[in-house]
Design a binder for these strands. Structure first.
Lengths: 224, 224
DNA sequence: AAATTTTAGTTTGTTGAACAATACAAAAGT
DNA sequence: ACTTTTGTATTGTTCAACAAACTAAAATTT
């Protein structure tokens, strides 16, 4: 009998764990991950850890400098702009081209509902993850496996940037109602309108993130 | 003095070499790449090769089945459709949104010129690579590093599919003039028109590829 | 003879240790 | 103050070994 325990491979489990520790801020952006130290603390061999490093580097979470080591990626302002450029292209067109009855709208609905509840509870960090869930739903409208994985990588990178800021309420609060509005327009069949709203949303969000980011960077005296 | 020899890391060099051997058909799609055999033939250690495998797997060139080994990916019909879906989204919008004076048009021009020359010489395989160059130029119009790398990965996957077909002339010949036409419209500032041409181009190309592919697959008795 | 189980062999998964090559920081010399 | 030297820590790479999982052939049962 196949017990159907997917028993993720060790590689995958370790990768997942490191991803987690990065996005929850345990490993700060820019910090170096020592091969020996980490492999010992995780109780895996150096070789195995190196394989995982190669994976996470390709995902954009780590930066690999030859002979120097791997570092938690620091999203530059340029890459933030790049990410938003891609998001505008993908998300807007996804909204515009999909049919309003697309199954992914369920995910979008649930995400918005969850966000509204979490707002009442003041759990802003979780509101943020709800936001990502909503936008993943939007991308899912395009029915493309490759776009989905690309997008989830982008979101992890963005999460890194947000993580350097704290201040979850200020960043996420304004967008809950906007999400709801976009969803509403989309389900009403007004895809053009929904796409336009999304475009403005993204441009605005980008601007806010960049400005806060710039201030924080210069305050910390970082050289980018 | 820094000799400025970028001395690609061993990892990168090996990855590049394997990529080459795959796209030029030396490693057939679906075939397994043995860790011991390949590492011995390349005169590198098994560990190093495994790291490279992880890289190429994330690029979509290899498929990794746990405890079974890594195999050269066989593009399924579904993934071909997926790739073209992404291409339509990215390339059309790139054409539509860019300014006609964008520097990337130089690359597009040169690619078309090269294609026309190669056609006279009947060097159809190189016409194919010229085609990829043109479309890379189109994507470059979007000014997004991430879209560029995504796209080059897509093209390598496509190249795998084309590689299973041979028959380069039949596949590439009709599109040279279309490329030229698209470029012309774009430089004339008629971006909407250029985007529409590109959309038709891609839809047509997809259909041809899929039909040939389906026939070839059933002939070979492959189970997809 | 067909189906199942045993068994043996091959390949990947994972580890540990070793050494070479490179980068970094401190000490020494000019 | 600047360069050179030296020493040390870290990554790059290899090798060897064994455990775990898969594959296929042989042996057994039905």
């Amino acid at each position: 009998m196949n017990v159907a325990l997917p028993t993720l491979s060790l590689n995958d489990r370790v990768a997942e764990q490191i991803r987690d520790r990065i996005v929850r801020g345990e490993f700060q952006p820019g910090s170096r991950l020592s091969e020996v130290a980490l492999s010992e603390s995780l109780e895996i061999s150096r070789n195995t850890l190196r394989e995982v490093f190669r994976l996470l580097t390709k995902e954009g979470l780590l930066r690999h400098l030859p002979n120097r080591g791997v570092f938690v990626a620091i999203p530059s302002m340029a890459s933030i702009m790049d990410i938003y450029r891609v998001r505008r292209m993908i998300e807007c067109q996804a909204l515009q081209q999909a049919i309003p009855q697309h199954p992914a709208r369920k995910e979008m609905r649930e995400a918005v509902a969850a966000q509204k509840q979490l707002r009442e509870a003041g759990r802003w960090v979780e509101v943020g993850t709800g936001n990502m869930r909503f936008h993943k739903g939007v991308v899912a409208l395009a029915d493309s496996e490759r776009l989905n994985t690309l997008f989830s990588h982008l979101l992890v990178e963005l999460r890194l940037a947000f993580g350097m800021l704290g201040d979850a309420e200020f960043m996420h609060a304004p967008y809950i109602d906007l999400n709801a509005h976009i969803l509403e327009r989309f389900e009403a069949g007004e895809m053009e309108q929904a796409a336009k709203l999304m475009h403005d949303y993204l441009t605005h969000s980008e601007r806010v993130l960049l400005s806060v980011y710039a201030r924080r960077m210069s305050d910390a005296g970082m050289v980018l």
